[in-house]
Nucleic acid binder design. Structure first.
Lengths: 134, 134
DNA sequence: TTACTTGCAAACGGTTTGCATCGAG
DNA sequence: CTCGATGCAAACCGTTTGCAAGTAA
């Protein structure tokens, strides 16, 4: 089971199903399109609301890509990790960032900052995409 | 001199002046407001265009904050560094991230990614803002 | 039955763009 | 004189929200 969730509805289930079926980050729009493509008709607003709830509940990871869209991905482990995202095809690798949390905490303390949050994501071209590029 | 620049216009100069006068990240909107406040009347679109050109030319750093706005800051040194940004007042501290570049390179290599780029920013509440908050 | 969810469409906020005009070179 | 830069307003795009109707519990 994946943490708290508001109420069990079919659309919520459909959304979770799509997320469960992929390892990549997807935007709310993509998810919505995927749902319609497979026949589930769910409102865009509902997708956004569900995704937000899930992110708040910690069921999914979210990050903002270069163009400002928010991407969601099912969150495998409760352990915090970061990502290596392919700029071109969007595939991702979860990567461990040893010491980052610690470093962040230390830096924050040094400057008197509290309620810390950090954003550590790596972007690049995966081997496959790099090969394609001329 | 600060890299290539298209054409010397008064509004471009005013924008550069504002950026030169602060160490913080500012949004295009903030910059526009600041300009109007000091009497320089420059169109919002012009601010956006200038900022984009400058970012493309490498004259300014840019990053996207949690709410999706793009923030710009004059790019002091060619040396790469990261930031600790106050979620509330926007003030920033440059922080050193020892080993991050190295770690990023190692991770990328491990997964066969090339043309790497990374995004490492810390967000929190600065001491002043934390004190104000009830 | 009650209160949370949904769907729709309208509202939003930041950013971009079309077009006529302005002005640096 | 020319072509890039500007200003305005409209267009965009992803996301959020108000509200009436639907539905899980």
């Amino acid at each position: 089971m994946v943490a708290t969730q508001k109420r069990a509805t079919s659309q919520r289930a459909a959304i979770q199903a799509v997320l469960a079926g992929t390892d990549e980050f997807v935007s709310a729009q993509d998810l919505h399109a995927a749902l319609r493509a497979e026949g589930s008709v769910v409102g865009l607003a509902t997708v956004y609301r569900a995704l937000q709830d899930m992110a708040a509940a910690g069921d999914v990871d979210s990050l903002r890509n270069r163009s400002g869209e928010v991407l969601y991905r099912r969150c495998g482990q409760p352990s915090h990790h970061h990502h290596l995202v392919c700029r071109s095809c969007g595939s991702t690798q979860e990567v461990a960032a040893p010491g980052v949390e610690q470093w962040a905490r230390a830096v924050a303390e040094q400057y008197g900052y509290v309620d810390l949050d950090h954003q550590v994501e790596l972007f690049g071209l995966c081997a496959a995409c790099a090969a394609v590029r001329d």
